[in-house]
Amino acid sequence: MTTIFMLMTVFSKVALGAFGGGLATIPFIHHELVVARPWLTEEMFGQTIALAQMTPGPVALNSATFVGYRLGGFWGSWWATVALVGTPVLVIALLLWLISRASEGAQKKIAAFQKALRPAVAGLLLAAFCTLLRPILPSFASFHALISGTVLVALAVGCWYLSRFRPFKTYPQLIILLASLAGLCLKWLIV
């Protein structure tokens, strides 16, 4: 019982501190789970990140399920995940509720602030995009790295071209699956 309570408090904290989404949250999760508490070793943390990249779902969610299961079995993983997803959702629900109850003048100000926030959020997303882009860019470290990077960038451009057409436009997951299959076919070039 105490384990589950501890898992819930820690993962609510992770959820509230994990800000900016995606890979920007990794250093914070690392601090909470590896440095501040002996819940994961460096190696296990690396595995968790790799798992999160390779399985569906956000990194924070995957690490909550993973750590929760290791420490508290099924219910540990369940409650860690609930705390991680639920805490920010409560914050959003509260915000939405407050916005809906605000007076008309205040609502205009909130709308103006949301609009002012938009370019900043786009900048944050650009930063996240660059962390996604970096691993596939060609490097000049070796001939092989150059080839594999070029192939991957070409694959990304090809996917981008395809993404404007019908089934891919509506279901971008198809693009990701297609690109993974292409990766399998190009294994001799990129690994």
């Binding site: 990249q53 390779m54 996240a128 995009f129 996604l132 882009l133 691993p135 596939i136 594999s148 991957l152 960038v153 694959l155 990304a156 451009v157 996917c159 981008w160 395809l162 993404s163 971008p172 693009i175 990701i176 699956l177 297609l178 690109a179 993974s180 299959l181 292409a182 990766g183 399998l184 190009l186 294994k187 990129i190 690994v191």
Partner: peptide, 15 residues
Amino acid sequence: SFFLGASAGVVAVVW
């Protein structure tokens, strides 16, 4: 290689 391919597709989707 499966996941490297996926990461190329992911770049296109996020872009």
